[in-house]
Amino acid sequence: MLVHSRKGRWTAWLFFFVLFLPLFALPFLVVVMASFATHWSGAFPSHATFAHYRDVTHGDSLHALTTSLLTALAASLLALVIGTWAALAAERLRGAARRVLDGLFMLPVAVPSVVVGLSLLVAFSQPPFLLNGTARIVVLAHTVLVTAFAYQSVSAALSRLDPAYEQSAASLGARPATVLWRIRIPLLLPSLTAAAGLCFALSMGELSATMMLYPPDWVPLPVRIYGATSRGSLFEGAALAVVLMLTTLVVLLGMSRVRTRASYR
């Protein structure tokens, strides 16, 4: 313990919560409060209503939610497959080749998402690949952006995996493919579900590249939230934001449940 006096500890805690609560807790609180209101002219919002949530259950908002869910599902699955494959391939490499692969797969984190969107717009509006104006280009952009995170978490998990398991399996006569399917993938499962959850969450909230690419019939939730707030419907935007956060949270929790159920030791 760093601070020994009772007074000192209370000072530290007071300092912590004076900073922490308004900065990190208040934002979530006000968004939730606003989502149930139609006016905010005093210290607190007024005119409580469930109307915004009723709107989410049908029409364009519902469509935006399913669009986001489908996009996130497709992008996170694709990213998981590509990222896992690349991480497994990278593990067999040494030296410069390994560093090049690491750098390459982490590069999409460094490049601004808006630029990733722009580049896909430029590349896939012309032959030989015409994807502009389709849902696929949105999924592609999300995949590019989240693959780096899948790659990173699977790589980290691989480096933590005890080689004794695969060696024992090999000594028992299991070929590399069997070792991969029966031993390594099951042992990696907790990390894979965690990576999938992270990718899903990031894709659910992706706005920058999507703003560059979305076709009129494939409007994900973040774009819809932006649309609502920019035309002044802040309270509707707040309700949509709560739906976005809840969905993300449910998926993350679900994934972490899978994780605890599948984790060993």
């Binding site: 934002p27 006000v30 968004v31 409060m33 006016h39 905010w40 992270l198 939230i225 707030t229 935007g237």
Partner: peptide, 24 residues
Amino acid sequence: AFPSFLITLALLFVYGTVGMANGL
């Protein structure tokens, strides 16, 4: 794991022209 724009959206309700701080 949450998107960044949620923070700006929240700040609109805290410090925006209609919002908590100005409301107070």
